[in-house]
Nucleic acid binder design. Sequence first.
DNA 1: TAGTGGTCTAGACCACATA
DNA 2: ATGTGGTCTAGACCACTAC
Lengths: 249, 249
Amino acid sequence: MVSAAAHATPTFSPLYQQIKALILGSLRSGEWKPGEVIPSEIELAARFRVSQGTVRKAIDELAAENLLLRRQGKGTFVATHAEQQVQFRFLKLVPDSGSRGSEGPAQRDIIECRRVRASADVAKALALRCGDTVLQVRRVLSFGGAPAILEDIWLPAAPFKGLTAERLATCKGPMYALFETEFNVRMVRAEEKIRAVAATETHADLLKVAVGGPLLSVERIAYTYQREPMELRKGYYRTDTHHYQNDMN
Amino acid sequence: MVSAAAHATPTFSPLYQQIKALILGSLRSGEWKPGEVIPSEIELAARFRVSQGTVRKAIDELAAENLLLRRQGKGTFVATHAEQQVQFRFLKLVPDSGSRGSEGPAQRDIIECRRVRASADVAKALALRCGDTVLQVRRVLSFGGAPAILEDIWLPAAPFKGLTAERLATCKGPMYALFETEFNVRMVRAEEKIRAVAATETHADLLKVAVGGPLLSVERIAYTYQREPMELRKGYYRTDTHHYQNDMN
DNA sequence: TAGTGGTCTAGACCACATA
DNA sequence: ATGTGGTCTAGACCACTAC
């Protein structure tokens, strides 16, 4: 028996995975921006010197991961948070009666937006060094006139240079859509840690609830392409008239 | 398999979707049980008179939905909650430090298990009539000696005929694995509504927390094949040392 | 060595959107 | 009419598992 394997590389990577990585690279580099069409399967097959079927399988996986969006007869598009169908993809709070029909919070009040030095936990979450400059945003989201969500958001200062409270206030769609068009940052994945906590005075004041009453704490880290953390968000949700909906397959 | 519906019927169903429905039927009927191998792709292609590629695409989708599990060189298997890799798939509570390594709660105490009449909300959740007989189970799950979860579970009486507190207490693995082997019920999907609530005296007593303190309320409806609701579960989680983890792609 | 799922190809045809 | 993605096929070959 020959102990040596036929190929020296123990890492076997299918062709379509390599193609997938190449497409991902073009997405990450900004060659194709959110909302735009990417080249047709036939063009990509020619560019990469593989069959259309191989390109198809690569795109299939990227579409399953919500990075691309296929539209029959029209082409394949880079997914975007501005898309009507997938707006507020990461917002799981829905009214107890009926489900939110892809529309977001009616009112969004920016309480503050300032530059601060990253604390230890913020730095860790964003893969920065302690003391690095970050943007801190506080806002309140309301549904039907009643405040329901208080959010504290931390963003690395460099990629979001120029972001102001005014700019956030004049934004109509989702904040993540603004990030795409203004800062070329696309959020593709998010992890949330959820807890029940007692409302502090600040919470109570801004959300019009009783001090010590139960609030849902939602701590999110959002990632761009390549699993780079780009946002830390600590949310406090009222869950007396709404609930956090999680569907599992 | 090619239906001759070439009329004005707006219902166009690809071949592989029809194959998928047929495979689903066999799963539902119990022809192939959880943990068993299903026939090879070549066999299924012969049975259904289609190409292997078409069978493959049908199986691909079922595998993506966690109904089947492909294992290269061995075959395709019916997914099961007894599987080491996917045990406690629907349990999202993890310790704050480090993540649960596929092991579940160390201790599971059955507080009660009795037959009751379905209240309005239980009947609605389980698609039963108000007053129908249901089994009600209450239990406490502990991690590392400390109680962390109180659960009230309602099951339709008919499919779970013969289930007792003793049988539940002697069960080692996940409850859903017991359901598969003893009652031929496989849970494939679950919806959870999550809220923050204040602990009642009962909660406080069983979970060793303060009355009025924050608890995570997790209301789950679990479904078998074909989206039939088969379980209603109201859980109350302590989230001082653990958190509910939700990862979104 | 045989059988399984996994990859890759090439080509035909269908459904959908647009011009 | 053209171009896009979607379906279906047939066949070759690769990688993994078991015997």
